[in-house]
Write a protein that binds this DNA or RNA. Structure first.
Length: 576
RNA sequence: GCACCCGUAGCUCAGUGGAUAGAGCAUCGGACUUCUAAUCCGACGGCCGCAGGUUCGAAUCCUGCCGGGUGCGCCA
């Protein structure tokens, strides 16, 4: 492909074989971006010891055997034995031209894998919080990216749709009446419904008793109870789908794979674990003790697969999820986009499934999601200490964006402004989640994420909007800009070289499941474009060939920006 | 107590065992008869928590310590 780093690696490897013998042709040539050239090859330093020669002499030998005149303009040995490589401008231009003609913009198609991705996972009749927001946004970006790389992505929205709270929720639903305004709160403000149920449960012994009886009825499959349970789920789905629509994530009802889905499998799982000697009864509960998991005072920590009352908790269902994803979905990788605090629990559930032989051929991966903090450094809450309503938070982002758009673009009609505000506000929130490493905590700060400066969604959207403005003004479609690309100015060369990095970085995200790498790349690209934009007039270029080349570079940049943002799940407005 | 994660510029964060550790924000100084000045350019800013070790070479790998976060038996 057109990845310069890859091309250079192969050329240098060939040189290594030619210079030192075939057994050296497999050595990592250690090609890295360089501050003194485009790239540097650092293989000589590591090889010097193996060969018993001076690093600089080894480097000279590599250079003498390097056949790369068609790719590289300048080769220089410097320092203790670094080989600095400067690419030919015409080679970069040709690769950029290929990228422009490639519908995939240089992104490779990878060996197809089955990849279930567990993400979002809100609870029925409960408000989604910023933690859900983050797993939803990160998981969705991974799903989009892996799909684009050619994988068979199976979205698994592991809804919290089962458990003891449903006793009180169903009883509360009965009391307020199906179809009542109170019941409709589940669709709009689920925490108020949940808290009302909770208050009754805590305040009335009689209600609590009914709730407990209702749990038993639910678990034993009582049809009337099941119908009410399904009603609650339907109401909640309306809420989730409003959030998902506002967030522009790809989850649909078809992706729902809630806890209850595994109910029928749990008893069998426990029996089999016990038969295989993996699980033992301890203090009345069926437990799996795995080596390496100890808690306070060195006591072994169990994964409880059957509670002493005979019920099942999330330990059992999480064993069941991996079993299902491995045996039924034939997962090559099973991705869990879940909060970092659950790391130990997941390891135990997976360890149990593996011990039982239920995860053969499947690599489970935990994409750990760090906590979201407020500007005070604490878990994000409202001033009164209540958890923040996700819908209100998204609306605030849109409102803030609308205020900026209203001030900056009074010339646009209200509908257009509203649409831009929606795209910018939501894009800013999503990009903020995606621009930092998923496993670190990060500070939620509207002012920062909505800024036009820095590594923000709006900055990238603005770069794309300016490009579209160029084509509007020039009276042509981006597709009509076909070059040929010729690189003269430094800014043109730097932009073209940056464009070539798109495919590799997307592939890297697919391998490491780190979307923030793509964000960082897109930010670099937007910066490279902005510099180009400042220094290189496109429409007003001096002559036609330069104009055609710059238009092509601009079109390629738009393609990569829009495609990259799309992989992250962020929209690129036509204008801003 | 044990386990996992984290400690990088005043702040928020990047950083593939490679040369003089990078962005953005903030601060200061510049740039607009020119495709969107909401965008750019420059300056300032660092014992990469501390101490050892491995290595030709460590922010990166290993060990110990200090500081912060999280988890550790019947909620999920």
């Amino acid at each position: 492909m057109a990845d310069p780093q890859d091309v250079l690696a192969r050329r240098v490897q060939t040189a290594l074989g030619a210079a030192f013998g075939a057994e050296y042709a497999g050595t990592d040539p250690v090609i890295r971006p360089s501050q003194f050239a485009d790239y540097q090859a650092n293989a000589a330093l590591a090889l010097a010891k193996r060969l018993g020669r001076k690093p600089r002499d080894v480097a000279a030998d590599i250079v003498a055997h390097l056949d790369a005149g068609d790719v590289v303009r300048d080769i220089e040995i410097s320092g203790p034995g670094f080989i600095n490589l400067t690419l030919r401008a015409d080679w970069i231009a040709d690769r950029a031209q290929e990228l422009l003609a490639d519908p995939r913009a240089g992104v490779p198609v990878q060996q197809r894998q089955n990849i279930p991705i567990d993400y979002s996972a809100p609870n029925v009749a409960k408000e989604m919080h910023v933690g859900h927001l983050r797993t939803t946004v990160v998981g969705d970006a991974l799903a989009r990216t892996l799909e684009f790389l050619g994988h068979n992505v199976i979205r698994q929205n592991h809804l919290g749709d089962w458990g003891t709270p449903f006793g009180m929720l169903i009883e509360h639903l009965l009391e307020v009446g199906e179809g009542s305004a109170e019941a409709d709160l589940v669709k709009t403000d689920p925490n108020r419904f949940y808290q009302a149920a909770r208050a009754k449960f805590d305040g009335s012994e009689e209600f609590a008793a009914r709730a407990r009886a209702r749990v038993v009825a639910l678990q034993s499959g009582d049809p009337a109870t099941l119908r009410l349970w399904r009603e609650l789920i339907e109401l909640s789905k309306a809420y989730f789908n409003r959030i998902y629509a506002k967030l522009d994530v790809t989850l649909t009802d078809a992706d729902l794979a809630g806890e209850s889905m595994y109910n029928d499998a749990l008893a069998g799982i426990c029996d089999e674990l016990e038969e295989k000697g993996i699980a033992v009864v301890s203090e009345g509960a069926l437990c799996v003790f795995l080596p390496g998991f100890t808690g306070r005072e060195g006591k072994p920590v169990p994964l409880i697969v059957r509670k002493s009352d005979g019920g099942y908790g999330y330990g059992t269902t999480d064993v069941a999820t991996l079993k299902y994803r491995s045996e039924v979905l034939k997962a090559d990788r099973a991705v869990y986009v879940i909060g970092a605090p659950q790391a130990m629990h997941l390891k135990m559930a997976w360890g149990t499934a593996k011990a039982a032989g239920w995860a053969d051929g499947t690599e489970p991966v935990h994409v750990q999601i760090g906590n979201v903090l407020g500007t005070d450094g604490k878990i994000l809450r409202t001033r009164s200490g209540a958890p923040i309503r996700l819908m209100a938070l998204l609306d605030e982002a849109i409102e803030r964006a609308a205020k900026v758009v209203g001030e900056a673009r009074p010339d646009l009609d209200p509908d257009t402004r509203a649409r831009i505000a929606q795209q910018v506000g939501i894009g800013a929130v999503k990009y903020a989640d995606l621009s930092v490493a998923h496993d670190t905590e990060y500070v939620f700060d509207f002012d920062r994420m909505l800024a036009l400066h820095g590594n923000t969604g709006p900055y990238l959207q603005y770069a794309a909007a300016r490009i579209r403005s160029i084509f509007r003004k020039g009276g042509l479609e981006p597709e009509q800009a076909t070059g040929p690309i010729e690189l003269g100015e430094d800014a043109e060369r730097a932009l073209a070289l940056t464009l070539l990095g798109f495919g590799p970085v997307v592939a890297h995200v697919g391998d490491t499941l780190e979307p923030h790498r793509l964000s960082g790349y897109l930010f670099e690209l937007a910066q490279a474009f902005t510099t180009f934009y400042e220094r290189c007039p496109v429409l007003k270029a001096d002559d036609d060939s330069v104009r055609a080349s710059r238009l092509a570079l601009t079109a390629a940049t738009l393609r990569v920006l829009v495609q990259g943002l799309d992989l992250l799940g962020v929209q690129a407005p036509e204008q801003m």
